[in-house]
Simulated scan of single mutants.
Amino acid sequence: MALVECETRSRVAVLTLNDPPVNGYTHEMMKELDAAILACRFDDAVQALVVTGHGEKFFCAGANINMLKTAAPSFKYQFCLHANETLLRLEHTPKLVIAALNGHTVGGGLEIALACDLRVARRGAGKVGLPEVALGVLPGTGGTQRLARLVGKPRAIKLMCEGTTFDFDTALAYGLVDEVWQTETHAAFLDRAIAYAQGFTTPGRAALAVGRIKRAVQTGMEMGLEQGLAFERELQAELFASEDAREGIAAYVEKRKASFQGK
C-alpha cells in the first residue's frame, strides 16, 4: 500500500496521505511524499498540486506517536530534519500547492498544510490546531516558524502555548485557511478542491506566472527588500521570455481572452 497516493487529473496532481485511521506520518510516508513532490516538479503535465488525506475523518494527525515513542533520539532528530527538508521542497516547488483539509488537521498535519500555498477546508469535517505542548514538545516540523509568519507572533504563541484545537470556521477567521466550503460528501469536497486548483492552470491562467508569483513570495519574503526585488526581477525576466507572456500581452492589445500554454 502506498503511503502517499498520487494521481493526475487535468493538470492537477492529487497527493493523498494514506495511512488510516489518522494518516499519521512516519519517515516512510515522508520519503514517499518527498519523492512525489519531486516527481510533480519534473512532470510538465502537472501545473498545480492538491494535498489531502485519505478518508473522511483525518487530513493528518501529525507524526506517528507510537513510532516516536520507541525511536532513538538520533533518529528523531534526523526524522525532523528530513520532514523539514520535504516541506521546504514543497514550498519551493514553482507550482501552486493547495491543501484540501478533508478532516482533522492537527499537529504535524497542520504543519504540512502550512507549507502549502493555500488551504481549503470542508466545513464541520474536523478540528485544526497545534497541540504539541500537551506532549511536552513544540511543533517541530515548521509550525513555530510558519504559523508566526501567517498569523503574527502574538497569536501564534498563544495558539501553540494553549495547544487548543478549533473548527475550520475559526481557522478561517484567524487566517489559517483561505476557504471553507459546505459540501455534502467527501468526494464532492475533493472534486471542488481539484476544480479550484484547475482555475490556476492553462489555458485560462498562466501557470508559469502563477508558479513564479509563488516563488517570489515564498522565497522573497525571507530576504531583505533589496534582495527580494532583485529576485523578483529575475523571475520577471524569465516570464517576459515565455510564450505565455507574449500571448497575454497580445490578447490584451487585441481585446480577446488569452489562451495560455504553460510555455
Rank of each mutant, 00 (worst) to 15 (best):
V97P: 02
D178Q: 03
L130P: 00
G220M: 07
G143S: 00
E162H: 03
Q47G: 09
E132F: 07
F168C: 09
K214Q: 09
Y174F: 14
A48P: 01
R233H: 15
F231L: 15
A187C: 10
T105V: 07
A48K: 01
G175S: 09
K57T: 15
P139T: 04
L81H: 03
T52Q: 01
I194C: 05
A99T: 08
D34W: 07
D34L: 06
G262L: 02
E234H: 14
W181K: 08
F189H: 09
E238K: 11
A35C: 00
R205N: 12
T16N: 05
A258S: 13
G53I: 04
L190F: 10
R212I: 13
E162N: 05
G220I: 03
A195K: 12
L17K: 03
F260C: 10
V217P: 07
K31E: 15
L176Y: 02
G248F: 08
V151A: 07
E132M: 09
L15Q: 01
L90S: 06
E91V: 04
G152Q: 12
L17T: 02
A197F: 02
L138H: 01
R192A: 14
R11L: 04
Q78I: 05
F166L: 14
G204A: 05
S242H: 11
A121H: 10
R155V: 09
S242Y: 10
D117R: 04
A45Q: 14
L114G: 05
R155G: 05
M29L: 12
L150T: 06
D117V: 04
P139K: 02
V137I: 05
L101V: 05
D43N: 12
A113N: 03
E238H: 11
T16F: 05
Y77C: 04
N84Q: 09
A72M: 11
M1Q: 11
A36I: 04
R212Y: 15
A2V: 09
Y252P: 10
K127Y: 14
K263A: 12
T170N: 11
L135R: 12
M160V: 11
A251S: 13
E226A: 15
L159A: 08
R122D: 06
G204T: 03
F231H: 13
T86Q: 00
R89D: 02
A197N: 04
A187Q: 14
L81T: 03
S259Y: 13
L110M: 10
G224S: 09
R233E: 15
G224Y: 07
L172M: 10
F166G: 13
L150G: 00
I249E: 11
Y174M: 13
P21F: 06
G24F: 02
L150A: 05
L3I: 02
D244R: 07
